[in-house]
């Protein structure tokens, strides 16, 4: 664990909490793309399946549980509890145009052709483009609430910090994962605007 990864995880956690609280407090999900939130829930589900098989640390396990819990709670608030405030006709990004190519790429380019590894690779690729429906929705409505911009900033910052974490780990531990790094660069670039 290094400072970049820790601040990256905290920034990610902050983004997830900011969004959940915003929807809960304002009792509205106006301006929020439910499709992006579904994609994030899918990212966490496919990436954290190893919750059932391997224990790395209390921090690792508890963060994974929190991420999965919050992401499903956010999807629940958007599509069930505050469904009336969901702006469906602006949230019109065709997510199948993301999921299908990402799924195909995960099957083609991965480190190991095992189910868990392919699902992990799928989640890495999907995470890098999962924010597109949200960015698309903001471009259509032409505006983003302040809180949404904070959410996007924290979310963008998290993966940028992970890039530094990978540089750190390469330099000090000789560890690198090209798939995570390339997807991380794509993800960070997407947030830059």
């Amino acid at each position: 664990m290094n400072v970049f990864r820790l601040t990256g995880d905290l920034s990610h956690l902050a983004a997830i909490i900011i969004l959940l609280l915003k929807i809960w407090k304002t009792r509205s999900c106006a301006g929020i793309s439910g499709k992006s939130q579904i994609l994030f829930a899918l990212v966490f589900t496919t990436r954290y399946l190893d919750l059932l098989t391997s224990f790395i640390s209390l921090y690792n396990t508890s963060m994974k549980v929190i991420y999965i819990g919050c992401s499903y709670a956010t999807v629940y608030l958007i599509y069930m509890k505050f469904r009336a405030t969901y702006d469906g006709n602006h949230d019109s990004f065709r997510v199948e145009f993301l999921v299908v190519p990402v799924g195909g790429l995960a099957v083609l380019i991965n480190h190991d052709f095992s189910p868990l590894e392919i699902l992990w690779t799928f989640s890495i690729y999907l995470e890098s483009v999962a924010i597109l429906p949200q960015l698309f929705m903001i471009s259509k409505t032409g505006e983003a609430e302040t809180i949404t911009t904070h959410y996007l900033f924290c979310l963008g910052l998290y993966r940028a910090l992970y890039l530094f974490n990978w540089i750190w780990r390469y330099y000090f531990e000789g560890f690198f994962d090209m798939i995570a790094i390339v997807a991380g660069v794509v993800q960070t670039v997407l947030y830059c605007d």
């Binding site: 995880d9 690792n60 963060m63 991420y67 480190h111 190991d112 992970y162 974490n165 000789g174 994962d177």
Partner: peptide, 10 residues
């Protein structure tokens, strides 16, 4: 080649 991948990252 297989990188030494550890899934200790979130």
């Amino acid at each position: 080649k297989k990188q030494n991948k550890t899934k200790d990252e979130l």
